[in-house]
Simulated assay, not measured.
Amino acid sequence: MTVPLGDLQAVAGTSGTDRATFITADVTDDADRATVANDLDEAYPEYDVRTSDNQVQSMVEERTIVLASGATLVGLAVVGGVVLTANLFALVAHQQREQLAALRAVGLSRRVLAGTIGTQGLVIGLLGGLVGLATTPLAVLGVNRFAASILGFEGLLRTPPAVYFGGFALALVVGTVVAIVAGWRAGRYARIEHLEL
C-alpha cells in the first residue's frame, strides 16, 4: 500500500510537527537497487526517487562545506594532539634533566635515554588508546541518538574495526615517536652542569 506523505502525516497526527521529508523503502539483499528505483520512479513520477548511494552523493554535494569543516576539525585534532604530546614530553624531559644528566654521567648513551623516555611515551600512548577505544562506542551511541532524533535515521554513524585499529595505532605511534624525539633532544642537553652539588 502506498500513501502520499502528507496523507500519512495527517493519519498519524503529525502534520506540521513531523520533520520527515522523505520515505525510505527497504529491498532484499539480492535486489538491484537501480532497477527498483527506476520502477518506483516510473510508477510515481511526482516523487524524486533515489537509491541510497544517490542520496549519500547528493548529501555530500550539498554539504561540502560541512564535510570540509569536519575534515579540518579532525586534522586540527590530530595536529593539536601531537603538539600537546610533544609539549608534555618536553616538560617531562626538562623536569627530569638532573636524573638524565646523572644517567649520562655514569655512561648511558643518548639512545638509552631516548628509549627510556620513549617507553614512557609508549605507556601513555597505550593508556590514551585504551581510553579512546572505551569512549568511542559511547560517543557513537550519543551521535546516533542525536541523529535519529533530528533526521529520523537510526544507526547513521558506524565505526568499523579499522577505525578503532587506526585510532589505537595513532595513539601508540604519536606517543612513542614524540617521546623518543623528546628523549633524544633531552639526552643532548643532559650535562654534568645540571647536577646539583
Rank of each mutant, 00 (worst) to 15 (best):
P161W: 09
V106L: 05
D39N: 14
G125C: 02
V27A: 15
D30R: 08
T116P: 04
L40E: 01
V163A: 10
V140K: 06
G187L: 02
V74P: 06
S52N: 14
V140L: 11
L91V: 14
T159L: 13
D32K: 08
G81T: 03
A101I: 08
N54M: 15
Q9V: 04
A101E: 01
R104Y: 06
Q57Y: 14
T85K: 02
T64Q: 13
E46C: 01
T64F: 12
N87R: 15
A31F: 06
Q95L: 15
Q9P: 13
T116Q: 04
G121L: 05
V11K: 13
H94C: 10
M1R: 14
L126S: 02
T64E: 12
D7C: 13
A186R: 00
E193A: 13
D41G: 05
V66P: 04
T85D: 01
E42G: 11
L126Q: 02
L170I: 06
G167R: 01
T176Q: 03
L172D: 00
G115L: 03
I117H: 00
L40V: 05
A186N: 06
R50C: 04
A37Q: 08
E42S: 12
N87Q: 14
D18P: 05
G13F: 01
N87V: 13
L40G: 01
A179C: 11
L76F: 11
I23D: 12
G167N: 08
A171W: 00
S149I: 05
A34M: 15
A179R: 00
F89C: 01
P161G: 09
L156C: 03
S149V: 11
Y47M: 07
T119N: 08
V178L: 09
V131I: 04
A190L: 04
V181N: 00
T119R: 12
L127Y: 08
A134Y: 01
Y189R: 14
M59Y: 15
G152D: 02
V106H: 00
V163G: 07
E154S: 12
G75L: 13
L127H: 08
Y164E: 11
V74C: 12
G132D: 01
S69P: 04
F89I: 01
A86P: 07
E46G: 05
D7M: 12
L73P: 07
G81A: 12
E154L: 08
W184P: 02
V173H: 06
L197W: 10
M59W: 14
L133T: 07
A93F: 00
Y47H: 06
D26H: 15
S109D: 09
A12Q: 09
G80I: 09
G155N: 05
E193R: 12
V140E: 05
G128K: 03
P4S: 12
